[in-house]
């Protein structure tokens, strides 16, 4: 199995609005994939399509080699946005439910994790803190023993300590069970630490996707005397540019080293790259909707 998620021309329309347009992606298995983008960019829509909770309006999506929402359900775990649990059920009830609904349920793993977290099995989920609830949802997702775990904004509502603990546990699970993970987030710093593959989704479109090390190694900032975009070499793909009277600042993607001595070349952080691609969609000519229009 080499692909976790494969989408071809995938689109989803709610009423008259496209929440996701022309999404073509090929995400390898065995990776921790970070899906980033502003609120309303289509992250949740893409993840819900991936687990088969939504059906596509256009195109196809395959998970682990089969169409989404078919026979693969047991191999895919899903922790939805805001890590939902049943408020009136106890932790023990949640584990029982997990065991009933999932043939591959690993009860000893679930029990061990709850114990390790110091949670009381008799406690109702509604009484848990945000961090504990997220940990319970992660426990359910991991104890299912899926090949692929999908998490929608798992840490968005957590305080920094709970966020760090959640990601520590998630990364441990990845190491221990050789899980593939797709998680959405709008925190680039979390993604930079825990993910090795990045998908940037803005305004219902995929702006860039790829191995994070490769992205870091192929993007540069060039600062130098003013130069028009037309005169840039063919192999330097311009992501963003700004000019003053005398100076130009380019953010480019290229597979070859930049040798032109007129430029001061600097490396970029992942955040620089993500922001450059996010900023691009607002100014792209094929798309003149403002970025904030679709925010919830």
């Amino acid at each position: 199995m080499t692909t976790a998620l494969k989408a071809q021309g995938l689109g989803k329309k709610y009423g008259r609005r496209w929440a996701l347009t022309d999404c073509t992606l090929d995400v390898p298995a065995g990776r921790v994939v970070g899906l980033v983008g502003p609120n309303g960019a289509g992250k949740s829509t893409l993840l819900n399509l991936a687990v088969g909770m939504l059906t596509p309006t256009a195109g196809q999506i395959e998970m682990l080699g089969n169409p989404a929402g078919t026979t693969q359900q047991n191999k895919i775990g899903f922790v939805a946005q805001d890590t939902p649990t049943y408020a009136r059920l106890s932790i023990a009830d949640h584990l029982k439910l997990g065991a009933r609904l999932n043939p591959g349920w690993d009860d000893s793993l679930a029990q061990a994790r709850i114990q390790q977290l110091g949670l009381d099995l008799k406690q109702r989920a509604g009484k848990l803190s945000g961090g504990q609830r997220a940990q319970l949802a992660l426990t359910l997702g991991v104890a299912k023993r899926p090949e692929l775990l999908i998490l929608d904004e798992p840490v968005a509502a957590l305080d920094p300590l709970a966020r760090r603990e959640f990601l520590q546990d998630l990364m441990e699970a990845v190491t221990e069970h050789e899980l593939s993970v797709i998680l959405s987030s709008h925190l680039v710093s979390d993604v930079e630490r825990s993910c090795d593959y990045l998908v940037v989704l803005v305004d219902s479109r995929v702006q860039v996707s790829g191995d994070i090390d490769t992205l870091l190694a192929t993007h540069y900032r060039l600062v130098g005397p003013r130069r028009e975009e037309k005169s840039m070499p063919q192999n330097q793909h311009v992501v963003s540019v700004s000019h003053t009277d005398r100076q130009s600042t380019y953010l480019i993607r290229t597979d070859e080293p930049v040798l032109d001595p007129a430029w001061t070349v600097s490396q970029l952080t992942l955040e620089d790259i993500v922001l450059a691609y996010m900023g691009r969609s607002t100014s792209a000519p094929q798309n003149n909707r403002p970025l904030l229009e679709v925010q919830r």
Partner: peptide, 15 residues
């Protein structure tokens, strides 16, 4: 071990 490091730093095991 890789598991100890990722558990402590919350970083990707591949790193």
């Amino acid at each position: 071990t890789v598991k100890d490091v990722v558990g402590q730093l919350a970083i990707n095991p591949n790193t």
